[in-house]
């Protein structure tokens, strides 16, 4: 196992490549999740505002 992880002395290069690739993908997904939350919050607020207007003809819709 240790031999496998050592990658014949090339460990920093091999695991550096794959580690950063994994990190980049995880970061991308976390950012997307955060953005989804932000979008949902914003839309919920918008829906609430529309609801308060009570179906009156709002110029936005």
């Amino acid at each position: 196992m240790i031999e496998f992880l050592a990658m014949g002395g090339h460990a920093p290069y091999v695991w550096g490549s794959y580690g950063v690739a994994l990190l980049a993908m995880v970061v991308e997904m976390v950012l997307l999740r955060q953005r989804r939350k932000a979008v949902n919050r914003r839309l919920a607020r918008l829906a609430r505002l529309n609801g308060e207007e009570g179906g009156a003809t709002s110029p936005d819709v």
Binding site: L32, R35, R36, V39, N40, R42, L43, A44, L46, A47, N50, D60, V61
Partner: peptide
């Protein structure tokens, strides 16, 4: 990402309101 983008762009459209 395209879904989120679409929601933001079309946030005033009826279909978005239905789905939210």
């Amino acid at each position: 990402r395209a879904r989120l983008e679409l929601l933001e762009r079309e946030r005033r459209a009826a279909w978005v309101l239905e789905r939210t």
